[in-house]
Amino acid sequence: MKLSARAFKYGDDINTDYIISGKYKFKSTDMEAMAVHAMEELDADYYAKVKPEGGFLVAGTNFGMGSSREQAPLVLIHSNTKAILAKSFARIFFRNAINTGLPVVECDTDLIDDGDALEVDLEAGVVRNLTKGTEIPFPPLPPVMATLLADGGLVEHFKKHGGFAL
């Protein structure tokens, strides 16, 4: 799968409270409505900027630290975020992203600036920075996670196989 979009770049240690605040996540299970608040704590315009044409959320280390809320990857998906590129991820967010079908790429994001045009090739394990004309390799997902992502997330995996088929 190849994905193309612009980079929207943020910093280290972005926690799930910043991705979607607790004060919103308890209001409903309507992720489309909740998505307008995605990343609000760091960038109030995130939804307005990313939703129309899609984008890659690019960050530093420990992206998605904190709470287990699955609303975090869901509001990013519903704000048209195509994938997250970060130097490292917090464990629970990483699983939640795979389970909900949001690609996560662990790579050297120092080589990406805000606004760069990127192409992410998940099978080849390479991020092509079209603005800079450079390539950033990344290790492929372990087979279990690649299977879940290829099936479209854990719910679709269960529907397809009637349970775990890993």
Binding site: S68, R69, E70, P73, I92, R95, N96, N99, T100, G153, L154, V155, F158, F164
Partner: peptide
């Protein structure tokens, strides 16, 4: 801790 879909599974 896990997310809701892991919890459901």
């Amino acid at each position: 801790g896990v997310g809701s879909t892991d919890g459901a599974a």
